[in-house]
């Protein structure tokens, strides 16, 4: 057990708990930001700098900014999340979703562990070159399927937005 892992793991979990328990929307979003950055640091520790950078760029830099944008657009600074947090149906839904997610992640981790086992890293692991090779040679179909899925989501979003206008 190394210190590096524990520092950022505790940071991520602590910030996550803060995020769901915070009464104010913006500190909550900042808690999520801390989670993302702690996770990115863990990726760095796992010899995956590219994933770490993508984590920061995409999640912290783009998606969370959008979330914050919505918070700022729709809420006033004095407003609190108490109403939403007290809603029982939300709580039950969240519990079910969280349970499902945890189960999925656990199963996935076990699957990966069984498949790979413990072994030393290959030469140049985690570098952008190898990342690109894997993505666009070995897993091109998966990549394209994912991008088509995102495109469908985008078109769907535009359709829904257009109908209301």
């Amino acid at each position: 057990m190394d210190i590096y892992f524990w520092v950022f793991a505790v940071m991520a979990v602590g910030a996550g708990v803060f995020m769901i328990s915070s009464k104010d929307p913006l500190p909550s979003a900042l808690g999520l930001l801390t989670v993302f950055i702690a996770l990115a640091s863990l990726y760095l520790h796992l010899n995956a700098p590219l994933v770490a950078i993508f984590q920061v760029t995409i999640y912290a830099g783009a998606i969370l900014v959008l979330v914050v944008f919505v918070i700022m657009l729709l809420m006033t600074p004095g407003e609190r999340l108490g109403e939403v947090q007290r809603n029982v149906s939300y709580r039950i839904m969240g519990a079910i979703l969280g349970l499902c997610a945890t189960t999925l992640i656990g199963l996935g981790l076990k699957g990966v562990y069984d498949l790979v086992g413990e072994r030393s890293l290959p030469e140049g692991f985690g570098s952008p070159n190898q990342f690109g090779e894997l993505f666009f040679r070995n897993f091109l179909l998966h990549f394209e399927v994912a991008s088509v899925l995102l495109l469908v989501a985008l078109i769907g979003a535009i359709y829904i937005a257009k109908k209301k206008v």
């Binding site: 913006l26 930001l33 700098p49 920061v56 760029t57 830099g61 900014v65 700022m72």
Partner: peptide, 28 residues
């Protein structure tokens, strides 16, 4: 000289916005 230097720059560029958001929100 990290091998993802270019992405690092883009990532940090997108982080700078939080200072502005937090400052703007906290000022009330």
């Amino acid at each position: 000289d990290i091998n993802v230097g270019f992405l690092y720059v883009v990532a940090l560029g997108s982080m700078a916005v939080y200072g502005i958001i937090v400052g703007g929100w906290a000022s009330n």
